[in-house]
Design a protein around this nucleic acid. Structure first.
Lengths: 100, 100, 100, 100
DNA sequence: ACTGAAGGCTGCCCGC
DNA sequence: GCGGGCAGCCTTCAGT
């Protein structure tokens, strides 16, 4: 027995897809809340959560990629005359005997 | 004898926090990938994933949110009421089809 | 003779870009402060600044945005229509007061 | 001559406040668009806009504040065993004769 | 000073 | 591969 237009199979499939998606989305949301809680807990313990977030981001960023990005920033900073404010710039100044 | 400057934070506590966070983030990422796969599967089966996404979004919008939206609309309207005697308010109401 | 590695970007061009950006950002910041002052002044005069902010927001919401929102609602409804034969869809429609 | 309820003065004041605010908001929005255009122009010229944004942020951040933040990140990274990934960590390793 | 909310911005995912 | 649209993050602001 089939419905008019024969979309009954499609409907069942769709229902299945939607339910699976919503289940996963709920889990994802739950995880996001757990993460928030951990940061709150860390904050209560006296940690700087902003620095923590940055550390997490750095750790999950590929090392090469990170160095390339930093090198580009240093290049721009030095072009802007802010050499003294970058690690690479400081290294260069030290090498050249510039007082900091 | 204690550490210089007393920035002797609890290293193992920090490590614990970060490890928990990274674990949860990894799970979150995994779930996001699973969701992506389901959409791809649905698309292969002939569904309109854009409409599916909208349907999921609609269903996530629960009654509380709807009430918040209504409260916001009410506030808008009361603000408009305050402006009822001003040209600006009249222009806004005219645009919005509010009877004057 | 040219620079080593040929990362000889146009330094003065970069400086020009950055200076223009920083100038504009400074102006933007200044405007934000002016706005803050006006709200403070209005508050002192006895106005409800929260309602004022809502009124401003409402008036910023122009006809185009309203049409976009309507289009989104229409899409929602068509998505619901697709789900008309499913329990999930029926639940959603019941919740939303859509006649079945 | 005064309106019933004597809120005519309030209304006029409110109108004045709203108009001033909206004028300033419009200017602010315009500036934001200008800034976006400059970044787009820089991108067309071959610059890395992400690095540019970072450089701008660094320049407008107080030097001491910047160093404090970086020191905190370095401290956390070293506590996590990622000493080699931070400038301060690298300096410490160099000082101690650790091969990089 | 902290918290909660609002707006702006960045990165991600899709379609072209 | 790119740009647009969208979600999540971050920052800023009012209130406590």
């Amino acid at each position: 027995m089939t419905k008019i237009g024969d979309n009954s199979m499609d409907t069942s499939l769709l229902k299945n897809f939607i339910e699976r998606i919503e289940r996963l989305e709920a889990e994802k949301k739950s995880l996001a809340e757990d993460i928030k809680e951990i940061y709150a807990e860390a904050k209560d313990t006296g940690f700087d959560t902003k620095a923590m977030r940055k550390a997490v981001a750095l750790r999950q960023m590929d090392a090469n990629e990170r160095k390339e990005q930093q090198a580009m920033i240093d290049l721009y900073m030095s072009a802007l005359g802010d050499l003294r404010d970058t690690p690479l710039g400081q290294a260069a100044m030290a090498r050249d005997g510039v007082a900091t």
